[in-house]
Amino acid sequence: MSAIIATPISAAPRRPEARSTQPVLPRVAWWVISVCLAVLFLYPLWVMVSQISVEDFLSFADGAGGLSVASSLGNSIFVSVLATAVTVLVSTLAGYAFSRLPFPGSKAVFFVTLITFMVPFQAIITPLYLVLRDIGLSNNLVGLSLVIATFNLPLGIFLMRNSFAAIPATLEEAALIDGSSTLGALWRIMLPVALPGVVSTALLAFFAAWNEFFATLILITDQAQYTLPVSLGILSAGTNNAVDWGLMQAGVAITVIPCIVIYLVLQKYYVAGLLSGSVK
């Protein structure tokens, strides 16, 4: 952006990037420091990868008490997919309503949504447990998914509202003049344009759900229903307090590798979502 603004000011050709970067560190020092830090940051991941053995992966399916890496992985996938789907669907609809279809009280509702941002769910986890018990969803993966989705909603609604607000009003008007219904315009015209926002919302929701620890630990009491992050410690606990570290690291790898792959592939959307969600 700044480069575009800079061009008309200076008549002589110049390279602002090269000039602004040259001061503090000489080239060689920069490379040495960057590489050393990269080694430090990658070291724990190397430890994880170097510990994986075939036997550990073969022992994934059988576990004591109905708990195994395979079943925990299934639970994790179920919770993450459901929580992500609910977050994306609900925040798309609400984001569209808040940006395009204001109704009496919609400002107040949006304000309450933003307040949820500031209240840590750790603080209301005890009554949440009781609420889930009251509506028959205690110790239930669907209940857990809905709770995780709810706590991702503020960010999701915020991102989707901004995505829709950035689209020129004339686009929707054109669709409506052509005879589209409001929902038809949302689905066929607006959503494709707002797709980057949808992807960002989905990624943030997925990472949050996949890595959730505290809520699962408290809201799920049946070990067979545990998701990966919570089951890792129990899975590897053998008899006589002996810990099967190999099995634990294999479980850690199963939890970590999908996150890294998804991040490397969709980095652009993830970073964009993070930045617009926090910096505004």
Partner: peptide
């Protein structure tokens, strides 16, 4: 339409946030 579209969000926030709060 706007109120209807916002309803699922209001319901979730009501049940899993405002009520426990």
């Amino acid at each position: 339409t706007g109120a209807l579209l916002a309803l699922p969000a209001i319901a979730l926030l009501g049940i899993f946030f405002l009520w426990p709060l």
